[in-house]
Amino acid sequence: MTSLDLLFAAFGLVAVLAGLLAVTTTRVVHAAMWLVVALGSLAGCFLVLGAEFIALVQVLIYVGAIVVLVLFALMLTRSPVGPQREVSVGPRRRVLAAGVGAAAAGLLLAVLVPVATVLPERTVTSTETMARDLFGIWVWPFELLSLLLLTALVAAFAVSRMDSPAEGARAADVAAAPGDPERGLP
């Protein structure tokens, strides 16, 4: 048990606790803030494991962008100060959610615990090594993923700019002035 192991355990514990608080709190913005703590602790875990770049990117993307986006969305919608009873669900769905969560955790544990009997050598992964692997061995999956993201981005733009059919018809009505043969009738 080295100090790094202790640090890892501490970060992991904080991440789990913050995650639990994030899903159990009835204040939506508090949930987002607990998410910040959970994601930050996860970055701490990465850091202890010697993956500095991943840890920093984790904070930059998740805390610096995703959570900001979540907060932005919450501010645009209803997010009063104080508990929101209407967002909390009944006991049946709570039990169901807890069951699904426990099952997922159990599955992961069943896979990971047998592997964890031998203590692996802790190596510091330099950014160069990671870049070489990413753009060497894993270059095709990487490019495929970026293509997927690009497609999703373009699609998101298309969806947000697309008029609903009713609105489109109304716009055509307005545009097609009577006596304008070229426009035709809707």
């Binding site: 913005v29 803030m33 910040v36 500095e52 770049f53 920093l56 990117v57 904070v59 930059l60 805390v63 610096g64 962008a65 959570v67 900001v68 907060l71 932005f72 919450l74 501010m75 997010s79 100060v81 330099s126 950014t127």
Partner: peptide, 25 residues
């Protein structure tokens, strides 16, 4: 730290969170 350029960006990104939280709270 080896990736200090990234580290500074991360820190400045987290700092903005303070303003958001202040605005909401």
């Amino acid at each position: 730290v080896p990736a200090s350029a990234l580290f500074v960006l991360v820190a400045s990104g987290v700092s903005i969170l303070g303003m958001l939280v202040a605005g909401w709270a």
